[in-house]
């Protein structure tokens, strides 16, 4: 029997096709442990060996990784939601109802997108909290902390632009409250300090640029949709790449010097 299974295994793993995909075996040797990480496009973000405390959850809280995972969840569910959602005032709300009642697993998809987004906000705050408490922003990691603050800001902006898309009372008024702040921008808002003196009006100030109108309306929906689905995710992806790269280049996970 054993011989039969070994033969079966060999008939798969000794083929040219298999060998072209998987470069090394699975024997538990130090060499293979290195190769598992080095040869894998996903795992090679990691160093092959790490300080012992780098694998302790009581040290890392795992929050950076959880933030990244939740970002991937929102990206995948977000793309699926885009198949069913049209960012126009006529259709947006109806498409939410369509997702809820007609699309198979539509409500589940939307729930997962929303809760992962909320979870990402919390996880990114906890990650910052952990990095602060371990003093990991100290030299040589100063710049990566700055990149992290950018990522935190973009996470909030992603969540905020997504908040408008259901186009219900909750979303339109939350975004109205949020974007009303822009009219008070110093110099650039029509109710901000020295704004009127510089010729700012409701129809030409920074809030007008943000909303594409003088109030939250159909142009705002389209604007926030494009920002939410294209601009901010790409922006975030670029800075995530920089963030991960710098973690490695600045010496990996921090530890007592």
């Amino acid at each position: 029997m054993q011989a039969f299974f070994n033969k079966m295994k060999d008939s798969v793993t000794k083929t040219q096709v298999w060998k072209s995909m998987f470069r090394h075996g699975y024997e538990d040797t130090p060499r293979n442990r290195y190769l598992q990480v080095l040869d894998n496009v996903w795992l090679h973000l990691h160093p092959t060996r790490i300080p012992r405390h780098g694998a302790y959850i009581r040290f890392t809280w795992c929050m950076g990784g959880i933030t990244f995972l939740l970002f991937l969840v929102t990206a995948v569910t977000g793309v699926l939601l885009m198949f069913y959602y049209r960012p126009t005032a006529e259709y947006a709300f109806n498409d939410m109802k369509y997702l809820e009642f007609d699309v198979p697993f539509g409500m589940f998809l939307r729930n997962m997108h929303r809760w992962a987004a909320h979870g990402m906000v919390i996880a990114v705050w906890l990650h910052m909290f952990r990095v602060f408490l371990t003093g990991s922003y100290k030299p040589p990691r100063e710049f990566n902390w700055v990149v992290g603050v950018i990522l935190l800001t973009v996470t909030l902006l992603l969540s905020f632009t997504g908040y408008l898309l259901p186009w219900d009372q909750l979303s339109i008024w939350a975004v109205t409250v949020g974007t009303n702040m822009a009219r008070a921008t110093p110099l650039l808002g029509h109710e901000g300090p020295f704004g009127p003196e510089l010729g700012m009006r409701p129809d030409n100030d920074v809030r007008f640029v943000l909303l594409g109108g003088t109030q939250v309306g159909p142009p705002t929906l389209l604007r926030f949709y494009v920002l939410h689905c294209i601009f901010f995710p790409l922006f975030l992806a670029v800075f995530i790449a920089v963030h991960f790269w710098r973690v490695r280049k600045d010496g990996g996970i921090s530890g007592p010097l």
């Binding site: 442990r33 990691h46 060996r49 012992r52 405390h53 694998a55």
Partner: peptide, 14 residues
């Protein structure tokens, strides 16, 4: 010393 102690990423971290 604890911080200098290295372990394999595969399998301990992964």
């Amino acid at each position: 010393a604890e911080g200098k102690d290295r372990i394999f990423t595969w399998p301990y971290l992964v």
